[in-house]
């Protein structure tokens, strides 16, 4: 008989582990991924594959070069980063740029801090923002979704167009009124299902919501961040809209366009970079929402979700410090 094992209690473990959580997120990302393949065709497929493979490769390489011991590529976190990074770029992006994005996301934003769990910022967002700042033209050239699957002419210029948010921002800058601009926009229903210009993963709000419910069901995320993020964005946009409907767009427009859904459901809820306490999570979502609208309405960029989340990631340690859970028996002691 083998030696008996001695260890401290507890001697049993719940069936939860990091792998299950990470692959749960991957599963939740599948609907949005399928939508992106449907709308953007083979280019989406290539970009997603390249992104995932290069993320896994960079994580493995960083492990081999800088860390001892087993690599962590099998835990699935690199796959998530890869998919999310691909989701955040336009479908016409040159592949080599995406590889650079993956390098920054994995090596700079994640492994340099010590790997999964130690990164202060969401790696995929860091990669995305790096690309946005480095290659602004390529990152804001949006091929329009084209329904026929397996279209090969994804580099044809005639198919590119701005995102709805970009159209509005540009239009307002040129002094058009909102009414005239809105004629250029797709309908809400179209936007809800993804019929608009945008990054790979952010086009279909419905697909993202399905993934979000799956993660809620698996208890991978809690409702706090998405609800407060989206709620704050809506509320803030509503206030502006009520003040002057000719200058500010309908709050529903903010909801279905751009990366709000993707950010609120998949990026802001990243366990590693979001607060741990429900109250802190509500505050985190609130901050994200306010910053998103601030950047969208008054900022230089048409889209502000990634910046908002990254900024809130930076204050997460503070939020964690400020919001401690209620301790058992504490109220009576103080009272």
């Amino acid at each position: 008989m083998a030696l008996l094992t001695v260890s401290g209690s507890p001697h049993i473990h719940g069936d939860d582990n990091v792998k299950k959580i990470m692959y749960g997120v991957v599963i939740a990302l599948i609907p949005a991924m399928l939508v992106s393949f449907y709308y953007f065709g083979i280019s989406a497929l290539i970009l997603t594959a390249v992104s995932v493979i290069s993320c896994i490769f960079f994580e493995w390489a960083a492990h081999k070069l800088f860390f001892k011991g087993k690599t962590t590529i099998s835990d699935g976190s690199a796959i998530i980063t890869g998919i999310l990074l691909a989701f955040n770029v336009p479908s016409g992006l040159p592949v080599w740029m995406l590889v650079i994005g993956a390098l920054v996301a994995i090596c700079v934003a994640k492994m340099s801090y010590g790997g999964l769990g130690k990164n202060p910022f969401n790696p995929a967002l860091v990669g995305r923002v790096f690309l946005l700042i480095s290659f602004p033209v390529d990152m804001t050239t949006w091929p329009k979704p084209s329904l026929p699957f397996l279209t090969t002419n994804f580099t044809v210029d005639g198919l590119t167009g701005a995102t709805p948010l970009g159209i509005i921002k540009e239009g307002l800058k040129q002094g058009h009124t909102l009414d005239t601009i809105q004629n250029q926009l797709p309908h809400y229903a179209e936007m809800l299902f993804g019929q608009m210009g945008g990054s790979l993963g952010e086009v279909s709000a419905i697909a993202i919501i399905i993934g979000g419910f799956y993660m809620l069901f698996r208890k991978i995320i809690t409702w706090h961040i998405p609800v407060s993020f989206i709620g704050t964005t809506l509320a803030f946009a509503l206030i502006l809209w009520l003040i002057d409907p000719t200058q500010y767009v309908n709050p529903l427009f903010h909801l279905v366009t751009g990366g709000l859904m993707l950010g609120a459901v998949f990026m802001a809820t990243d366990m590693v970079t979001s607060p741990m306490n429900p109250k802190g999570q509500l505050l985190f979502g609130f901050g994200c929402g306010v910053l998103t609208i601030l950047i969208r309405v008054w900022g230089a960029y048409p889209e502000g979700v990634s910046f908002a989340i990254l900024l809130m990631n930076a204050v997460t340690p503070l939020i964690n410090k400020g919001f401690k859970p209620k301790k058992f028996g504490e109220v009576i002691k103080n009272g």
Binding site: A2, L3, L4, T5, V6, S7, G8
Partner: peptide, 13 residues
């Protein structure tokens, strides 16, 4: 060894 230990890797514990 008579038994195997599995847990936090600190002598103090």
């Amino acid at each position: 060894q008579k038994v195997k230990y599995d847990g936090a890797t600190t002598c103090a514990y």
